[in-house]
């Protein structure tokens, strides 16, 4: 691999075993400074374990990793000065207010009380939490907690930020907000490693994507490169009438890049070259007089990605729901 100083995050051959479960089985990652790496994978693939090792919370059984040029095993203190970590489950202190949570982190990062307060106020305003600053975090909504958690990880102005499934459980509008936050962090020069279960999220945010499966990276590419392999956008329609399915398949064959797939309940899916195909598709369906109850343009789901890359869907993964070992 290239010299470590070219990368903000490097992981080489990380392995970690929990009891009978090989959580990581040789994970390799590399992230250039100022870019976003999306780590895409289902529950149990090893995403959280990887982040916990890179964030010095966990020691790998073998392998090697550096963050900001510091070895996570040999110089954990230097790594901790470099990183911000936002976990899958917001780890804010429920009994403290928003302000108290952030001031505490500031004080632990050696800010004076006054600077810690100023920093807390700045972050609360930035995350639209000023009105809730004096309220105990217990009473925050899920989205507010998530934002407070992210704010807490930014108190020290980290240059490398780990986001573990930052949008899992958020509604679509809150998800877009979170994407905006990630983009502006990168705009400021931070390096971001984010894990996700959604290809569209990785596609929207990441410069490069590593697909992880059963503790191994099974694909690494740019979003465009990955989409070339697994197919880009798909159009999915559902006809009102089962009798229309055959004619609808004809329409989709004409607009698609390969043969449409028919699945249960009159649903037909076809890969398409790009978004511009949507309008002609609608027009042709109308011209044929085919009534549809559902029509969508979407990127492949994680299941579809895995079907293409590994030949099995995420549900069939051995050990994907194994006890207690986080994703």
């Amino acid at each position: 691999m290239t010299h470590n100083s070219d990368f903000a995050i490097v992981a080489e051959g990380l392995r970690k075993r929990f009891g009978d479960t090989q959580a990581l089985d040789g994970v390799d990652l590399a992230v250039r400074p100022g870019t976003v790496l999306g780590v895409l994978g289902p529950n149990g693939a090893g995403k959280t374990t990887t982040i916990r090792i890179l964030a010095t919370l966990l020691q790998a059984d073998s392998g090697h990793a550096t963050v900001g040029g510091f070895d996570v095993a040999a110089n954990p203190a230097d790594v901790r000065r470099t990183i911000g970590l936002t976990g899958q489950y917001a780890s804010v202190d429920e009994d403290l207010t928003g302000t108290q949570n952030l001031v505490l982190i500031g004080q632990l990062l050696n800010l004076s009380t006054r600077d810690a307060r100023a920093r807390a106020a700045e972050l609360l305003a930035w995350f639209d939490l000023s009105d809730a600053a004096g309220r105990v975090a217990k009473h925050y909504s899920g989205g507010m907690r998530r934002r407070l958690d992210l704010a807490a990880s930014l108190v020290g102005r980290p240059s490398v930020i780990f986001l573990d499934e930052p949008t899992t459980g958020l509604d679509p509008a809150k998800r877009e907000d979170m994407w905006g936050v990630v983009r502006s962090l990168v705009g400021d020069g931070s390096t971001v490693l984010l894990t996700t279960q959604y290809l569209d999220e990785a596609d929207a945010l990441a410069d490069e994507i590593s697909v992880i499966d059963s503790g191994r990276v099974i694909a690494h590419d740019t979003p465009d490169g990955l989409k070339r392999v697994i197919g880009g956008h798909r159009i999915r329609i559902r006809t009102n009438d089962a009798a229309d399915v055959q004619r609808a398949v004809g329409v989709l064959t004409a607009v698609g890049t390969s043969a449409p797939e028919v699945s249960a309940r009159n649903t037909i899916t076809v890969p398409v070259a790009d978004e511009s195909v949507l309008t002609p598709t609608v027009e042709r369906l109308a011209a044929e007089g085919i009534g549809v109850s559902e029509l969508s343009l979407h990127l492949p789901s994680l299941d579809e990605v895995f079907m293409t890359l590994t030949g099995h869907t995420t549900e069939e993964l051995p050990g994907s729901t194994s006890k207690g070992v986080a994703a």
């Binding site: 470099t82 930035w126 102005r157």
Partner: peptide, 24 residues
């Protein structure tokens, strides 16, 4: 959320993280 290009991490990335002061 106020999402300007000026984020709360601006103007820091190159700076060396400070070591803990005495009494920390």
């Amino acid at each position: 959320m106020t999402l300007t290009s000026y984020g709360p991490t601006a103007a820091k990335v190159a700076a060396e993280p400070p070591s803990a002061p005495p009494g920390a």
